[in-house]
Design a protein around this nucleic acid. Structure first.
Length: 875
RNA sequence: GGGGAUAUAGCUCAGUUGGUUUAGAGCACCUGCCUUACAAGCAGGGGGUCGUAGGUUCGAAUCCUACUAUCCCCA
């Protein structure tokens, strides 16, 4: 069979993914004889499309899971999605709008029916996309946070936390999204710099003809003002103390209060206090017992409490108020001003701070085990720098607002009673029983109970994920849960360290007494080459599926991993994927070379024999390095080490050493050794580039299903002789030097050269003479005690090598090069000597260090001697 | 305003508890090669004094302090 000169991943990738699926290689079930290795996927938003962040994060998970599988562990990667209340509801509302249906015109039940239909039809595309990437998830275990069992777990936890006193209702200032008509968590608010205006408005001081001036960006809220506030230390406003001011347009009298919160430098130094519409004002209001006047409806329009402009949108009202004030000469001036304004992550609406009744989880007590067990490394964060951030958050944890004014989600299992009280229960029946008890009224019926309208925050589902995917609530004694939980590694972005990771740890300890995972690997954020976050608005994100189409999933995976150290942001460049593909192509062609050889039963050439010994040792040495990288989650380094082993050691050196002359056959022993090495490198590369490696694995020979690479065994490190690697290195250095001479003198590789070596250690050279012959094209290698005239020379440590030249040698140039080398070495010797002549160094530094310095000194002195002799001989 | 992180070659990053060279890698760059696996390749090469200024130490890219710059989180 002939192979194309260029690797084409398209068909190969689909073929092998199907093959793995058909043979259930991703599937996992508890096996007492094997060690479990479990990862739960960070459930992507069910409305989501694969983006670069997912690609990175899932590639890492797949690398970990594939390696564990090959190590003989029972590898289980659970996939799934979360129901994303806000995003999904927005999608469904839009879809209904297109059909001419308003959400407000249909019942909750009808809406849910539409939402589920939407989910079945359009949801979870992202999981299909993950398959293109090669993700080896156990798809039979796919879960969804709104499915029956997982919802039951959410309700159970709510009721339980309520009973334990961790859940309460309270009025709070929340981030209100007037478009989505829901409260948002702080992290769902994006602050953007917005150009706005600072309006300077005159308020008459009651009982006088004088005015005070306040500066505000929100003149439409003046009707909700409860006071004017000044700093008690502000000498300018002594005359205002104890007075009252009149709100313009509605002529309402409000007190002037004093509070040190007011920044004397900012604006006019007079602050209007609007407790209902600003979090800071709310707090001032509490301190001064000011009334709260809420003038804005849920949809962002003014309500009747505003007295004027009722029904107008807040932004239109702003303009109209400005106009009205101007008309009455109460607008002193407008100045341009940029301010940070919160926007809804989902709807992009400007956030309205709003007081409302919400449900909260009391965090302070609940958080303790999750806090301690990260601090003591029971749960490890990788990289560990995130421990600081985690600590800071945990120590300043705030109560968690878990209610959302939406329908898509688990409806809060609280039932309001006619008298305004409420009960919390898992079912209607239990609620009714509780209500009867509470009210002492047996005649109550379900009709008297009204279930809370709100649903729970999506995070309130996903914080249970590592437990609920294994049915840890429904049936805590089940085999899966006992076997797979706690999970091993969690891979996610640092942006959800608090919203998700910390909360999972909290829930894990609360409900199982155990950590939900051992290690949390925090990936970097994928940015564009200019360092900007990838976003739809900027349009700076490449389409992941296009990337896969153009560079192959293997190429993209390798490209993403090549420069993404844990926790460091990755500046994504398509060039990385090209590099990934190049690498795949390199291996493909290496295979073409080997596959093309004709095999005969002849003796093994010395070079080939030695090359096998050498590569074996080099491989073992590298495996240790790779294991070390993996143990520290240095995935990028593990790949780079593999990359260099394959490209530099295997292709550039080993294959060149065993490669027979063109058209000549290869001896059977060398061929078989080479195939063995090839299999080993395919194994260690498989977690990174699964498709190409599986393809070549089967190209090597016909294999049974159970001999597939994906389930083959990971190479274990074997003892090896370090001296082989070290001594061969001398030969490789000689080769490089000779090639250097060829390059700089324009000598063709075809022209064989003579090499003379002046050394005290002939044995090392003799051992690997065959390497030098083959890779540097030597006519002969001889040892000498004297300098060789009319030759170019170079140094290997203090050994001197000579290549006789037929033509003239540019003596001046040679001298200059030698002089440069000499200067450097002298400088180096100088620094070493200085160290050694320092008595305090010699007496304080460890013996080993001193010995090393002495060795350096001796080497440098020998080298200098040789260099000086060479210079002298050149005249 | 508070907290945290980072600053090493043109770019992206290593540098593992301070001592294997006057600092490494990949990519990019330069030179020469269509050498019979691969020109998306091969061979060779140049390039940084480790953000700035101090300090600790026999010894600092590594520890401390200040400053500067950038980024993130919280308010």
């Amino acid at each position: 069979m002939s192979l194309a000169t260029k690797y084409d991943p398209t068909e190969i990738e689909d073929k092998w993914y199907k093959y793995w699926m058909d043979h259930k290689f991703f599937a996992s079930k508890p096996d007492k004889n094997k060690e479990p290795y479990t990862i739960v996927i960070p459930p992507p938003n069910v409305t989501g499309q694969l983006h670069m962040g997912h690609m990175l994060n899932n590639t890492i998970q797949d690398v970990l899971i594939r390696r564990a599988r090959m190590q003989g562990k029972e590898a289980c990667w659970v996939p799934g999605t979360d129901h994303a209340s806000i995003a999904t509801e927005a999608k469904v509302v839009n879809l209904l709008k297109e059909k001419g249906i308003k959400k407000s015109d249909i019942s909750r039940e009808e809406f849910m029916k539409h939402a589920w239909e939407w989910k079945e039809k359009y949801g979870g595309i992202i999981l299909q996309q993950l398959k293109k990437l090669g993700a080896s998830c156990d798809w039979d275990r796919e879960r969804f946070t709104m499915e029956e069992d997982l919802s039951a777990a959410v309700i159970e936890v709510f009721v339980d936390l309520y009973k334990k006193g961790y859940i309460y209702r309270g009025i709070r200032m929340v981030n209100w999204d007037p478009e989505g008509k829901t409260a948002l968590a702080d992290d769902e608010v994006i602050f953007k710099e917005v150009n706005s205006k600072l309006y300077h408005i005159k308020y008459q001081i009651e009982g006088t003809q004088d005015y005070l001036v306040i500066a505000t960006t929100r003149p439409e809220t003046i009707m909700a003002d409860a006071a004017i506030c000044i700093n008690p230390n502000d000498a300018r406003f002594k005359h205002l103390k104890g007075k009252r001011a009149i709100i313009p347009l509605i002529n309402k009298s409000i007190p002037i209060v004093e509070d040190e919160y007011v920044d004397m430098e900012f604006g006019t130094g007079c602050l209007k206090v609007t407790p209902a519409h600003d979090i800071n004002d709310y707090e001032i209001g509490l301190r001064h017992q000011l009334p709260v006047i809420d003038i804005i409806n849920d949809n962002g329009t003014l309500n009747e409490k505003a007295q004027i402009l009722i029904g107008e949108d807040r932004f239109i009202a702003r303009k109209k108020i400005a106009k009205l004030l101007k008309a009455e000469d109460l607008l002193e001036k407008e100045e341009d001003y940029t301010s940070n304004v919160g926007h809804s992550e989902r709807t992009n609406a400007v956030i309205e701070p709003k007081l409302s009744m919400q449900w909260f989880v009391k965090m302070e007590e609940l958080v303790k085990p999750a806090y301690e067990n990260v601090m003591n490394d029971n749960i490890q964060l990788i990289p560990s720098k995130f421990k600081n951030t985690y600590k800071h958050w945990m120590e300043n944890v705030r109560d968690w607002c878990i209610s959302r004014q939406l329908w898509w989600g688990q409806q809060i299992p609280a039932y309001h009673l006619p008298n305004g009280e409420f009960v919390v229960a898992k079912t209607d029946e239990e609620a009714l029983a509780l209500a009867k008890e509470k009210m002492g009224d047996n005649s109550l019926t379900l009709q008297d109970l009204k279930q809370d309208e709100d649903v729970l925050d999506t995070w309130f589902s996903s914080w249970l994920w590592p437990m609920s995917v294994f049915d840890g609530f429904k049936n805590p004694e089940n085999e899966d849960f006992k076997y797979y939980y706690p999970t091993n590694d969690l891979v996610t972005g640092p942006d959800i360290l608090f919203f998700w990771v910390a909360r999972m740890a909290i829930a894990g300890y609360e409900y199982t007494g155990k950590k939900p995972f051992n290690n949390v690997y925090l990936t970097g954020i994928v940015r564009d080459t200019q360092g900007r976050k990838m976003s739809k608005q900027l349009g700076n994100s490449p389409d992941p599926l296009d990337l896969i189409k153009n560079h192959g999933a293997d190429g993209v995976r390798a490209g993403l991993l090549l420069s993404s150290a844990a926790g460091n942001d990755l500046l994504f460049d398509v060039k990385l994927c090209e590099q990934g593909w190049n690498f795949g192509n390199k291996i493909w062609n290496a295979f073409r070379l080997v596959k093309g050889w004709e095999i005969v039963d002849t003796d093994t050439p010395v070079a080939s024999q030695k090359a096998q010994e050498w590569f074996k040792a080099r491989f073992e040495q590298t495996i240790i390095e790779i294991e070390d990288h993996f143990s520290k989650f240095r995935i990028s380094d593990a790949l780079m080490t593999t990359y260099k082993l394959i490209w530099d050691d295997f292709c550039a050196l080993y294959l060149e050493l065993v490669k027979p002359a063109y058209g000549a056959p290869i001896d059977r022993k060398s061929y078989e050794a080479t195939i063995g090495f090839f299999e080993d490198i395919l194994k260690i590369l498989h977690p990174f580039m699964p498709f190409l490696t599986e393809e070549l694995w089967h190209q090597i020979k016909e294999r049974k299903t159970e001999d597939s690479l994906i389930i083959s065994s990971w190479p274990e490190s074997q003892p090896f002789d370090e001296n082989i690697v070290k001594e061969a290195q001398v030969a490789f250095e000689v080769i490089t030097q000779i090639r250097n001479i060829r390059a700089s003198k324009g000598i063709s590789p075809k022209e064989a050269l003579k090499l003379y070596v002046k050394t005290d250690n002939q044995a090392v050279y003799e051992k690997y003479i065959s390497f030098i012959h083959k890779l540097a094209n030597l006519e002969s290698l001889e040892f000498t005690d004297n300098k060789i005239d009319n030759a170019l020379s170079f140094l290997i440590k203090s050994d001197e090598c000579f290549i006789p030249m037929v033509g003239n040698i540019d003596i001046e140039k040679e001298k200059a090069e030698l002089q440069k080398e000499l200067d450097y070495t002298k400088g180096f010797l100088n620094s070493v000597t200085k160290k050694l002549s320092n008595e305090r160094f010699v007496s304080n530094a460890p013996d080993q260090v001193v010995a090393m310095e002495k060795q350096k000194q001796a080497d440098a002195e020998a080298k200098i001697k040789t260099l000086e002799e060479s210079l002298a001989s050149l005249g």
